[in-house]
Design a protein around this nucleic acid. Structure first.
Lengths: 114, 114
DNA sequence: TTATATACATAAGAAACTTGGGTATATTTT
DNA sequence: AAAATATACCCAAGTTTCTTATGTATATAA
């Protein structure tokens, strides 16, 4: 991923969620979007991204479609039906995990507060 | 960790933070505390915990002290000075990571809001 | 007496990532 | 014009972290 050695399976969730919002994205675009959304703090490396995309495709959660743009090949990914189902599952898993993390690390934390 | 295969590296932060709050804890106690704080949702497995404790000790962030309690051996861990410094570093790393996650996954999210 | 709880530990394997390559075209900088 | 950066894909070796499966030992509950 980047300087952060955190996250393990959250990369998959990030990919799926971005594709839910954007319909079609190609790999490089995903890295740029994440960099932009986090003001450069999270940089998804290609070594992490492409294997993750291929795995999600192999699992039937994504489909691909190749386009030529200015003599360059772009591989667009989009959610399959199963992929659409998985987004919500993965999202609530992650949100609940983050909630539990807060409960452990911040004793005063309560859901619904900052 | 448990059913969650999420976020790697956060176990170290959890251990350090609990020890900051509790001064001395032994391994089994840590697993129980986490289970309790998360209402059983996160269960730290021994296969994950003990290697992590040993690693933190080897890095000089924790020291140990063995006690006999009812014919049972307990190995108490506590923070070293370096360990105390590391807690804040690891905590702000994790909090900033979680913030970035929110920015990616929840476009409307802003720090300070639920 | 069998199972569960307490309490430590290790070891093999899986999974996710980093690092470091490789290929190729387009644009910007020197 | 040459060099560097940006765009765009990919793979493979190695590291780290975790899971799963064991092993040891005592205490308590079913």
């Amino acid at each position: 991923m980047s300087n952060n050695n955190l996250i393990k399976g959250s990369l998959q969730t990030i990919i799926l969620k971005l594709l839910e919002e954007n319909d079609k994205m190609y790999g490089y675009e995903i890295t740029q979007r994440v960099k932009e959304l986090t003001e450069g703090e999270i940089k998804i490396t290609e070594g992490a991204l492409y294997p993750a995309l291929h795995k999600l495709e192999a699992e039937g959660l994504l489909t691909t479609e190749i386009q030529q743009v200015d003599n360059r090949v772009r591989k667009y990914y989009s959610l399959t039906k199963n992929g659409q189902k998985e987004v919500s599952a993965k999202m609530s898993e992650l949100q609940s995990f983050v909630g539990n993390l807060q409960r452990i690390l911040d004793p005063d934390w309560k859901p619904g507060l900052a």
